[in-house]
């Protein structure tokens, strides 16, 4: 069994994101970038499945600028076997990424595609679902537990109401939640070995995918600052203020 894992390079989750002065986007110069956190869980799960003997190969794929290769190297250092880098500069939307991934799936013929449930930069939460539609494969989103059962996959999903367990046939798309596992550290010897693993470089145009954005971004703004709260003396005052000042009751 082959597992394809799609990962993305994003602004590190510890960095305080700043909006550009002209509102054209967020500042990425001089900003620490890392792997999108749930993508680490996706890689970890794929590697664990391989270690348990159920999979033979883990392929990591990323779509993005030149430096996105660093993200692939990290995936290789924690156990992915090889990488594919589809080079794209500038903004790329979920639909275009899904179409690129569709081409990669056609070529590599994996039995499972893992990815993070959403990317923390644009929070779209669409790519996995779109890929499933394009391939006409079943999808299991927000996975927090995965079991193999009689050639099928049983997946526990984190949903608003609690946990839901579903069963999907293979091949399938699984998008991973942070609770799925605890990603491992890359050890020094494995980082060294990862430098020797292969990364195939492709261009979106080689794959015949049109990546022209379909959404026009008009303006990016910081959320308004929260006003300082006030202290009320008692419940009566609270009710009075909610009624007369906030006008919510």
């Amino acid at each position: 069994m082959k597992i394809l894992v799609a990962i993305k390079r994003v602004i590190d989750y510890n960095v305080q994101v700043r909006v550009k002065e002209d509102g054209s986007g967020v500042v990425t110069d001089n900003v620490k970038m890392s792997t999108n956190p749930p993508d680490d869980n996706a890689i970890e799960e794929a590697v664990k499945i391989k270690e348990s003997g159920k999979a033979t190969e883990v392929i990591a794929v990323t779509v993005g600028e030149e430096k996105a290769q660093e993200t692939l190297r990290k995936a290789l250092a924690v156990g992915a076997d090889r990488g594919i880098h589809v080079k794209v500069d500038g903004i790329i939307e979920p639909l275009a990424v899904s179409k690129i991934l569709q081409k990669i799936v056609d070529k590599e013929k994996p039995d499972l595609v893992f990815m993070g449930k959403q990317a923390i930069d644009d929070d779209c939460n669409q790519t996995g679902q779109m890929l499933s539609a394009l391939l006409n494969w079943p999808q299991a989103t927000f996975a927090s537990k995965i079991y193999f059962k009689d050639g099928k996959l049983e997946v526990v999903r984190e949903i608003d109401e609690g946990l839901e367990t579903i069963e999907v046939n293979l091949p399938a798309i699984v998008t991973c939640d942070l609770r799925l596992n605890e990603p491992r550290y890359a050890s020094l010897p494995n980082i060294m070995k990862a430098k020797k693993k292969s990364i195939e470089q492709l261009n979106a145009s080689d794959l015949g995918v049109d990546i022209t954005p379909r959404i026009q971004q008009i303006k990016v703004e910081e959320p308004p600052k929260r006003k300082a709260g006030i202290k009320v003396a008692n419940v009566a005052e609270l009710v009075q203020k909610l009624k007369n000042e906030a006008k919510v009751i």
Partner: peptide, 17 residues
């Protein structure tokens, strides 16, 4: 890496080299 507050090994434990 992967040592907890009480100096026990966590699941993600990775010895230094």
């Amino acid at each position: 890496m992967g040592i907890d507050k009480e100096r026990n090994k966590k699941n993600s434990y990775e010895p230094g080299i």
